[in-house]
């Protein structure tokens, strides 16, 4: 196998990794906000439900959750799977898993906003949602950025778990090439691609942190 073939296969797999990464962020970033708010809701059953959900998502392996989501339709509801099911299952599992982690980070950020901010907004007549969107959330973003950066970088690497239900992403592609070609090169390339992509993400996060550095509390 030529190096070109190897690399183009790895980049093909990397596209799948990136698609999982991007869809997870698109789904989990907003979903996490809803979960964080529901978790702090005054409606006790809802808050409890979210607590249990977060606890399960953080307390069980993502790989197991993927298995559960992939196979539950068949084993619980008798719905036949098809080759498209696994892609759906991977993305759903990643989104609901990461939404739970994001929700806890959001919650820590929301709770760190001083009471005085809410009181000032209340006296000025802001509604609850205006207060959250205009005053609380922008400050939360700045506070949680380092923690979110950690999760986002972990997410890129976690995409390699997708093959446990048969979605071939970059790492499983690398392993398949290693097996047939009996060479370590694909691992080296894969490591390089992971690192470079995380380096890009780190740089973007650093730029964003710098942008938000115009104020401190």
């Amino acid at each position: 196998m030529t190096i070109q073939t190897m690399l183009s296969m790895l980049f093909g797999g990397f596209q799948t990794s990136l698609a999982i990464f991007a869809l997870t962020l698109v789904g989990a970033l907003p979903l996490g906000v809803l979960v964080a708010l529901a978790r702090q809701s005054r409606i006790k059953p809802l808050a409890w439900l979210m607590r249990i959900y977060i606890s399960i998502m953080r307390g069980t392996p993502l790989m197991l959750q993927m298995f559960a989501i992939y196979f539950a339709p068949y084993y619980v509801f008798g719905i036949q799977l098809n080759p498209g099911s696994k892609w759906t299952a991977v993305v759903v599992a990643f989104i609901i898993n990461y939404a739970a982690y994001f929700a806890e980070i959001y919650r820590s950020g929301i709770q760190s906003i001083p009471r005085g901010q809410y009181e000032a907004a209340e006296v000025l007549g802001y509604t609850g949602s205006q207060t959250f969107v205009r005053i609380v959330l922008p400050q939360v973003v700045k506070r949680i950025l380092p923690a979110m950066g950690n999760e986002v970088i972990t997410l890129i690497k976690d995409t390699s778990l997708a093959f446990s239900i048969g979605v071939a992403e970059m790492f499983s592609t690398a392993r398949a090439i290693v097996a047939s070609q009996v060479t370590m090169l694909p691992f080296l390339f894969a490591a390089g691609i992971y690192w470079v992509s995380n380096f890009v993400i780190e740089s973007l996060l650093a730029a964003l942190e710098h942008r938000l550095d115009y104020y401190h509390e």
Binding site: G116, A120, V123, G125, I135, P138, Y215, E217
Partner: peptide, 19 residues
């Protein structure tokens, strides 16, 4: 809500919006 529009409050700790 209407009543809130009739007064303002200046806090001891300012409570300005830092961002």
């Amino acid at each position: 809500r209407e009543a809130r529009s009739r007064f303002g409050l200046v806090f001891q700790g300012y409570n300005l919006f830092p961002h």
